[in-house]
Design a protein around this nucleic acid. Structure first.
Lengths: 154, 154
DNA sequence: ATAATAAAAGATATAGATGTCTTTTATTAT
DNA sequence: ATAATAAAAGACATCTATATCTTTTATTAT
């Protein structure tokens, strides 16, 4: 009888959010000079389960993070304005703003005027995460992706 | 038919880890001058479900983060050495070291020599989190807890 | 020794996140 | 108009984290 508990995930973001970020990077880089890219190609390009990604992209589409058209030659794309949006918009659309505003110890009462033990330490970190996501735009990695320097596949 | 998805948690730590941190703070502050504290009192003191917390403390006990004795006058406590251990030990015992070492985008290939798009940005944040948890000891908040300045209850 | 106490251990239950499948709707090309 | 394509939508399945309950073991006091 085992004592192994594996801990599969537990990163900063949810799996959904990881897929969301990788997919917007992928769509941005594939459709920067026009055109669309289908769900199959995106799913392959970022090593994600296709139907699950479809759900995520439906949501991002509803929230205006990505654009889409149905039918032949349809697919997902991003307009010029969307390309310039910060990653923070994607994260907030998927995981909410809890990562930027929530208490690190999960305490409801915790606030600036009534802080929990770790409030100030966490504020610093949360601000850093938020700042990083606000200063990184969706299109920031297009060049490196074009050059094949970085990858979005597992 | 609703489109609300609430997003109950999604903080930095798992709920389990939040309870773990709050409980070691509580045990430290209650048993700093000797004595033991029972699971009921701990659970009340940190607003956590008692049986769930019992599981967490069993695990922390096995891993040497807290000490315990059974029977009348039994309960949990922490010895002097344990009180000085960094919070990072608690987090690692519960959530593993993924938070300090894992890829922000969930990519397996990602490493220092073969980084993902956000690798360097994340390294910075991960280091900051790790540093904060390494420089905060379990007993750091005993005084403030004694004075009632801070609380561990929801 | 016995009874009372309190944690440990094991089994079970629930909820939310993750993943899959089928049907519907919109668009395009013929 | 019709057929083909591809996303949207809805229903369903699975898995993990979270939570609960019951039984067992260790300790203490009588």
């Amino acid at each position: 009888m085992h004592m192994i508990s594996l801990l599969l995930h537990m990163g900063i973001f949810s799996k959904t959010c990881e897929y969301a970020i990788r997919s917007v990077f992928f769509i941005a880089h594939k459709t920067a000079d026009g055109g669309r890219v289908g769900i199959k190609e995106i799913a392959k390009g970022i090593s994600s389960p296709e139907p699950f990604l479809a759900k995520i992209l439906q949501d991002l589409s509803r929230r205006g993070i990505v654009q889409s058209v149905k039918g032949p030659n349809g697919g997902f794309f991003m307009d010029k304005n969307t390309l310039k949006r910060p990653l923070a918009d994607v994260v907030e659309a998927v995981d909410g703003n809890n990562l930027f505003t929530g208490c690190g110890l999960g305490l409801e009462y915790c606030s600036e005027s009534n802080p929990c033990p770790l409030h100030h330490e966490f504020k610093d970190i949360r601000n850093k995460i938020h700042h990083m996501l606000l200063t990184t735009s969706i299109e920031d990695f297009n060049d490196d992706l074009n050059l094949g320097i970085i990858s979005l596949k597992k």
